[in-house]
Design a protein around this nucleic acid. Structure first.
Length: 279
DNA sequence: CTGGCGACC
DNA sequence: GGTCGCCAG
């Protein structure tokens, strides 16, 4: 009976959109992984800011959110992100439990904040762009990727199929001695869910630049491995290989109108963007 | 929030 | 074992 009432109260809280989880959560000051703390020092936009996002409310369709865990451009009109950019190395891979989806507490006042329940019974997964498993060094770090600003309506067969397989592949690279610069986001429109409307992307894309664990940005050269994917956001592809969706970065630029790798020389950009990976 | 469930590697 | 999720209470 006691559990019953706790359930009902929780349900009411969730449905009302009140962000009680912020208060119920128990941040542990000393709980962060103190053996290695690369997060605070990493520049997650080391390769560039593909859409020129700004941290100003006037830039509401391209609003830059920078956290120790990632950099993200949010689109208030679409109620999803434009892209999220992050660095991945061995220090990011820990063993925390998955957090719970929550509204993003840091969006400007007056902006609609997508709730986890906005996706319920929509037919779409709450699809992480920056995967939970890439941020498991501590509970507070993992919590940051469960903000709904990092989530798009993603077809289950995409999210749980080849998209997930590529996420696994990236972490395997890291465990095999690599570090990755990653950026991912939605593209196009397949309608919307919810009220207010949350854009359902027609595609999701992801770019991984692969370096050895001890490389610097300055070690990037024309032979650096770059893997770019563009995957339809629909069901029926669960058993596809992620390699079936490899494209060039140039293709993603053409489709999204973003510009990647702007912090690299134009020669290097041109060379890397034409490549079609064969992993 | 917890706990149970299902899918896949 | 892990990962990704779903829903009920």
């Amino acid at each position: 009976m006691r559990r019953f009432w706790i359930g009902i109260i929780t349900l009411i809280v969730l449905l009302s959109g009140c962000d009680a989880q912020q208060f119920l959560a128990t941040p542990k000051p000393g709980s962060s992984n103190n053996s290695n703390q690369p997060q605070a020092e990493v520049n997650h936009m080391a390769l560039g800011n593909p859409s020129g996002a700004l941290p100003e409310t006037s830039s509401s369709d391209n609003y830059l959110i920078q956290r120790p865990e990632y950099s993200l451009a949010y689109n208030r009109k679409l109620n999803i992100l434009n892209w999220v950019s992050w660095h991945l190395d061995i220090g990011d891979l820990g063993n925390t439990d998955r957090s719970q989806f929550t509204t993003d507490p840091d969006l400007p006042e007056g902006w609609y904040r997508v709730k986890p329940t906005d996706y319920t019974n929509s037919g779409y997964d709450r699809g992480h762009m920056l995967p939970s498993a890439d941020r498991t060094a501590s509970e507070s770090i993992n919590r940051s990727v469960f903000y709904m600003t990092n989530i798009v309506p993603q077809a289950p067969d995409n999210n749980q199929g080849p998209w997930k397989e590529f996420e696994d592949y990236c972490r395997d690279l890291v465990r095999d001695g690599k570090q990755l610069y990653l950026i991912a986001g939605p593209e196009g429109s397949d309608g919307s869910i919810g009220d207010p409307k949350i854009r359902v992307p027609k595609y999701v894309w992801k770019i991984a630049l692969v370096l050895d664990a001890n490389d610097q940005i300055s070690d990037i050269n024309r032979n650096t491995e770059v893997i770019a994917l563009r995957m339809p956001n629909r069901d029926g592809i669960r058993d596809k290989d992620w390699r079936d969706y490899i494209v060039s970065v140039a293709t993603i630029e053409e489709k999204t109108k973003y510009t990647f790798f702007t912090n690299l020389s134009s020669e290097l950009q041109n060379s890397l963007k034409q490549k079609v990976a064969t992993p």
